[in-house]
Write a protein that binds this DNA or RNA. Structure first.
Lengths: 136, 136
DNA sequence: CCGTATCCGGCTTGATACTG
DNA sequence: CAGTATCAAGCCGGATACGG
């Protein structure tokens, strides 16, 4: 592992520095985070919970093609990273409500920028793909 | 597949609408995009190329633990989606330069917000994990 | 120098069945 | 209702060898 490129270039760069020397998932925050929210269901659930809290079964119905196993696991991962809060109400039968934490809301702000970009530019990407596939 | 939640809520929401009815990767721009940049190497290469164009071998040296196979494949995927441009110089032996396209630069702007958030909040996430793991 | 082809192990995901 | 347990399938990513 070696080499570092500066993000604090003289001119137009706004960012900090990209360190290419410690790229393990544990040491690289970016890869660590993107590896999680890049999962198959994470962002979808973040979008749902960004609006308002939901219960397990509600989420299950909102995302019909998710398996119970993956819903549980994804929610647990998001909870573990501190993005969502899990509250058990001792009703009978018990109900569990999931809601965004302040940290999750903070993450959702920049994440929403990417989401909106994706929505706005999906056609451009699809066209690029068609061009690429055509010439090969 | 069913259900749609509005992103145009009366109050503080800035966004469009999250459609939970068509969630196939082909139809859902967000999942489509995040599925790609969530890959193991994509964001890393985007960060490198956001700074300036690089040649294949340079990228290989910058990210020492990437295999040649994955470097080729990731670059191909990014090129296919229209984020980066691939230019072959008929030198001897041939050299290939990769550079960001306008589309790639456009994507990198919101992506950088997420990257910076990750850098700023990695400690908070790690603490949340420790708390979670401790109580279980 | 810049790739492709092939093989293969492991993690992620899904289906199904079962519990408090 | 809200999970857990178990097992099997599939894709991702890595190692290696070869080609233009």
């Amino acid at each position: 592992m070696s080499a570092t490129i500066s993000r604090l270039k003289p001119a137009a760069s706004v960012s900090k520095s990209v360190d290419f020397s410690n790229l393990d998932f544990d040491n690289c925050p970016v890869r660590d985070l993107l590896n999680h929210i890049g999962g198959k269901w994470s962002t979808l659930l973040m979008q749902a919970l960004a609006e308002k809290p939901y219960r397990f079964g509600e989420l299950r119905r909102m995302v019909p093609d998710i398996s119970q196993r993956m819903l549980t696991q994804t929610l647990r991962d998001l909870q573990r990273d501190g993005y969502i809060h899990r509250e058990v109400f001792p009703t009978k039968p018990p109900s569990v409500e999931y809601s965004m934490t302040p940290l999750g809301q903070a993450l959702y702000r920049p994440l929403l920028e990417v989401i909106n970009w994706a929505l706005d530019n999906h056609d451009a990407v699809k066209e690029a793909r068609q061009r690429f596939d055509a010439e090969v």
